[in-house]
Design a protein around this nucleic acid. Sequence first.
DNA 1: CTACTTATAGCTGTTTTCAGCTATTTTTGA
DNA 2: TCAAAAATAGCTGAAAACAGCTATAAGTAG
Lengths: 211, 211
Amino acid sequence: MLQRKNTIAIVDDHPIVIEGLIRLLSKKPEYEIVGGFTRGEEFISFLKKAKAKIVLLDIMLPDINGMDLCKTIKTISPDTVVLAFSNYQERSAILQMLANGASGYLLKESSIEEIVICINEALNGQITFSKIVKEIIARPQLSESQDFAQLTVREKEILKLIADGKTTNDIAEMLFLSKFTVENHRKNLLQKLKAKNVADLIRHATLQNLI
Amino acid sequence: MLQRKNTIAIVDDHPIVIEGLIRLLSKKPEYEIVGGFTRGEEFISFLKKAKAKIVLLDIMLPDINGMDLCKTIKTISPDTVVLAFSNYQERSAILQMLANGASGYLLKESSIEEIVICINEALNGQITFSKIVKEIIARPQLSESQDFAQLTVREKEILKLIADGKTTNDIAEMLFLSKFTVENHRKNLLQKLKAKNVADLIRHATLQNLI
DNA sequence: CTACTTATAGCTGTTTTCAGCTATTTTTGA
DNA sequence: TCAAAAATAGCTGAAAACAGCTATAAGTAG
């Protein structure tokens, strides 16, 4: 049996990025690029027939959300290492990718060296992040929870109840308030979190870790 | 002004663990142990008056859940580095702690060297994990995402739009469907995810990583 | 002390959601 | 190919949400 090469696939909607990565990685004999894909579906089809030890995965794709794609990849081929390769710097996006099975998160602005280091770390079974990503994860959500409305204690209390599926009337009864009061808190929550309706509200609150 | 020492606090319900950490860390002149606490509340009170550069935080505490405590710590003192120090090996627990602002996750079974290394890395602003934790994060979760209600493609599509704050009519227009159709999908979503209303729906969907 | 914020309460009218049904066509799987 | 599942469309009526206002008491910070 031949020695297993580190087969690498690349999924990115910009062909030039794929090209660059191929050129970069082809120099190293221990790597073998098995494919570059601009659409998530293409890669999924590929993965059903062939194998890839590691995949560099952009989050922003034309046909499918990268978070979902990551989960799909891990379902089809649990041994494939997913390394997120993205422009997004949101803490929540990073954590989401990890939650969905990614082994690391690289920013596209990373240096060549950094990319190579991270790929190697990922291949060794480690989770790995580019420098800036580490900082983003490490720092408490300064940028986030700062400009993000800080809610009053009462508002947070009510937000949690809303998220729990309670209606305005439910909440009013539970907290011994008039339904009008609860309605107002609700309105303030929508406004503060710039949400259009409850669905939007809960999503924002969840992303901002308020629940 | 004196040089800032690396002030360390320890929160753990087992005094013997606190004792061990104190003895271990006191040997290093660059560390200063400012307190050991067996209850979350005690530490919160402390943190309101004093400072700690880093806190080793057990997740299992008698009075308060470590996940919540972590968030509270980050709220009171955003600069304090929280390093989870726990027995729990669940992937979800690890990710939850990160999401709540922890800078790393150490298993209690870690070697002395590993603990010291991780503390140093955390102090340098990096996120850090003990070896086994890295493996846990890296390996895909097979059992988790299985039993979760499998939604149809259309349902997922509509779920996302709902989470995005779109109303039934919005969605109907966007997808060229009758509003009745969208209403039905909506009902099916509520039923499948056992949600009482949209708020509940989005929360469940978020927790189950469907969005 | 004053101004601001928070929490409270109220009203009106419109829009949206939700529960409860039926029913047809299309797609899929066994 | 036959049955099941999914997607589509429809209706009604009640409940809830939402927008847009006003207003007062209590507490807080400058």
